[in-house]
Nucleic acid binder design. Structure first.
Lengths: 225, 225
DNA sequence: ATTCATTAAGTCATCAGATGACTTTAGGAA
DNA sequence: TTCCTAAAGTCATCTGATGACTTAATGAAT
């Protein structure tokens, strides 16, 4: 259970500090001991403490304020979450990604502006119909379109989650499934923009769901065979 | 587009090193300059270089071999995504979390089993009506109920993302907002279970959405004041 | 008593120099 | 050629010091 036999002082320091936080000995928002004290507690030099703290800061667990101190920002380890999500199956990831896009379209409909709608139409026009000779460009522009739909939701958290799943699933698909998933035609894409432009969240939801359904069906068929 | 004006030497060093890698000036597997040279190149001290390098090592981008050198391990940094999510605003996180739960209930309705429904009813019964004297237990059991709803979706990716958001938002609320968000009554909770049990995805969607709407409204009211 | 500017203490940010541990490679002996 | 040894290169870590920034205490003026 505990490999943890790293001959690496900074890494063990990271683990020790993290342990203090996960066991709630150091609460969220609380200020932790200063560098010199930490160095004494961990039995390492200040330089090593700084390296450990900076890693934890980069992971969002700690937060340093010059002149004030170092504070606990969060107890959850994003790295762990990431790994667990990575281990989930491709199908579930795609399904989640579809769900995210449906909700994004819904929000986009309630918050749409003429400028955003025009930009979406512009992007779809640039992309054009599928042309096998220009496959890479098409895939790239198509992904950009879908990201733009999500961006139109105006929800930054949703945008980031979608971005995460988008790159993640793309990597898996490239790595595992040789065949591409079916891409709905131009009319289906336009329908999404129209639904958003109509301002009707229900319509946007249904349209996007209808758009996504065949993709998941085809994936299930591929995985079954 | 790029704020990036951090007065932080180590962070700018991280960005510079990462830039060398993303632009392929330093290829994967290649050994990068030693610490002293890097210090000269970046115009910082060795200690700062070490802090930057250790962060990149913790992100899997670099790899150090004592006595040998520092090598490029990978160019991708998908890990950033979840960290960026955490830096987004509370409102957007709550909204996304609600969206996730709506989609989860929808999936749960299509895949529900009598056992799962019975378990949900059991959990809700155990939780009972709100009692101020037993606040902590109530909050805990309520959160468990909502996680169980998401778990009933059967989508492991969705479960993991929801878990990430639920702990993340909970921490923010505890840390920032003193007042708790309103929790719908027992009837509203039961309605979600009924909707899932009915097997009607539309009904589950609408019921859960109705459940979530007041929470977001109240949050907006709190943030406005 | 209250307000406000000043001062001092505490803390992180960064630097410089030095030593130890480990890896790699070159050179020499068998 | 093969094997061993020594030297050079590199990361790991420590120590000590200075600057920048924040916070709280101080004290004067109102």
């Amino acid at each position: 259970m505990q490999p943890a036999v790293r001959t690496n002082l900074a890494d063990t320091a990271i683990q020790n500090i993290r342990a203090e936080i996960t066991t709630s000995r150091w609460q969220i928002g609380e200020r932790i001991p200063n560098e010199a004290t930490l160095a004494d507690m961990l039995g390492v030099s200040r330089g090593t403490v700084r390296e450990a703290v900076r890693v934890l800061v980069s992971q969002g667990i700690l937060e340093t304020r010059q002149g004030s101190g170092t504070y606990v920002r969060s107890a959850i380890d994003a790295e762990d979450s990431l790994l667990r999500i990575r281990r989930t199956g491709l199908r579930d990831q795609v399904e989640t990604r579809c769900a995210l896009e449906v909700e994004a379209a819904r929000l986009a409909a309630t918050r749409h502006t003429p400028e955003v709608v025009a930009e979406l139409r512009q992007m779809l026009g640039d992309r054009g119909e599928y042309n096998p000779a220009d496959h890479d460009r098409y895939v790239e522009q198509d992904l950009a379109f879908h990201k733009a739909v999500v961006a139109a939701s105006g929800n930054s958290a949703l945008i980031e989650v979608y971005e995460f799943f988008s790159t993640s699933t793309q990597e898996i698909i490239k790595a595992t499934v040789t065949g591409e998933l079916p891409e709905p035609d131009m009319a289906a894409h336009s329908a999404i923009i129209d639904a958003i432009a109509s301002g009707d969240p229900e319509k946007a939801t249904l349209t996007t769901r209808a758009f996504m359904a065949p993709i998941l069906l085809e994936l299930d068929r591929l995985l079954a065979s």
